[in-house]
Computed example of a mutant assay.
Amino acid sequence: MTERRTLLWTRICIGILMLGLFVSGITAFPLRVELGLGSDILHATPIAQWFPDAVGWVDRVAAALVDVDGRYPFISYGTDWLAYAHLVIAVVFIGPLIDPVRNIWVTQFGVIACIGIVPLALIAGSVRGIPLGWQLIDISFGVIGAIPLLIAWRLTRRLERMAQVA
């Protein structure tokens, strides 16, 4: 693989991660509306019969958000900060997008952050009473995020070796 092609694939991997972070961030702002819509969609499909516990959990979370937002709207400020953090972390990856070799530490940080999702989901999820299935869904975000990052890390190392040979 040429240096130019390796750089392109590195940037594609970083771009995929940035897009995921951006989408996760933007969609964390309107949680109450999204969960209400999600609940309606789930009830209009056979999924409600196939996975009644999962749909019940979505309904419970949607009802809780309506209740909390109605009585304590300032609590949603916490998820606004969560959304903002996703957007800020996406911006951090502009460095490796521009110069992956010089900014490999950001890619490494991203892999570490993805790995950290596993114990956080299992520990905090258990403490907060989150069903195991939902904890596994949360863990999948770390696994999915780590895939393009690990590929980008490997390709960045290749770019580094190519630069040393040249």
Rank of each mutant, 00 (worst) to 15 (best):
H43V: 05
V88L: 14
G95T: 03
A63R: 15
W57I: 00
P46M: 11
A62P: 03
D67F: 13
V106Y: 13
R60M: 11
L35C: 05
G56C: 13
L97M: 12
D40M: 15
V33A: 08
W50H: 15
G95N: 06
G78E: 02
Y84D: 02
I41E: 05
I123A: 11
G95P: 00
I47D: 03
I75G: 08
L31I: 15
A64D: 12
F29R: 11
Y84W: 13
I98R: 01
W105E: 10
L35A: 06
D40W: 14
Y84H: 07
V118N: 02
I47F: 04
I41V: 15
V55I: 12
S24N: 09
I115H: 00
G36A: 06
S76F: 07
F93Y: 14
A83K: 08
A121K: 02
S76Q: 09
P119I: 00
F93I: 09
I26G: 06
I115R: 00
Y84A: 14
A48K: 07
R60E: 07
D80S: 09
I117F: 08
R60D: 10
F29A: 06
L97R: 00
V106N: 06
D99L: 01
L87M: 10
I47H: 09
V101C: 03
P119E: 09
P73E: 04
V101T: 13
V33F: 13
S24G: 12
